[in-house]
Design a protein around this nucleic acid. Structure first.
Lengths: 112, 112
DNA sequence: CGGTATCCAGTATGATACTG
DNA sequence: CAGTATCATACTGGATACCG
């Protein structure tokens, strides 16, 4: 049993999935793993995402301590996002999940 | 880009999360990783789950080739669930996700 | 025992318009 | 540029009752 922010998870895997399970989160983390990016840059990298969702997912990741948000106080505004140390520690896991998914998709295909 | 069952995933991580992301799936896989279990056994192991959800999650896992379902044709009915080879290949990944979640929860706690 | 069928609530996601 | 606000929709999960 794991507690985090008023929620109780029956195992810590569920906590992990909650943290990275948003529809766009792994993509955002993947991009930020390569380099720090501005809001508009991420928006262009994810053409299908709406502004609302990009904002929401980034806020949640920030709130959970996985990404850092740095506001340059200037006009026009400039906001830069980067992975925190905790976020960086996720990258090998994302690789593993990616490899398994690729393997799975190949197997599934060969069964048709 | 990965295709699976009429859905397109922008990366294979999303496919992986889709397959194991159901509310009860990791718990089910965790139990089945220890031993094969009958429907009622799983139901008792997961006291909070409803019959509908247990059935639904098991059907999806079966449909995705992650668990096997074996019906003993007898009265009363007996249905046994087990991990497929594909399901077994998930276990190390679940361990990794669990370890990261535990680590995360400890860190988060110490930041209060 | 191991399910189905119905109905429903809550959350997650999306479209669109507006703003400091 | 980097957001908010509002409204609409889709999806997930749950309560309950019934069935071979």
């Amino acid at each position: 049993m794991v507690k985090y922010k008023d929620n109780e998870y029956r195992c810590s895997i569920e906590l992990t999935l909650k943290l990275i399970g948003g529809k766009w989160k792994v993509l955002i983390l993947w991009y930020l793993g390569e380099k720090n990016m501005r809001f508009g840059e991420l928006k262009r990298a994810l053409p299908q995402i709406t502004q609302k969702m990009l904002t929401k997912q980034l806020r949640e990741l920030e709130e959970d301590g996985i990404v850092n948000r740095f506001v340059h106080h200037q006009v026009p505004p400039k906001v830069e996002y980067s992975l925190s140390e905790m976020g960086k520690s996720l990258l090998p896991i994302l690789s593993t999940l990616s490899e398994w998914g690729t393997f799975y998709a190949e197997q599934a295909e060969s069964n048709y």
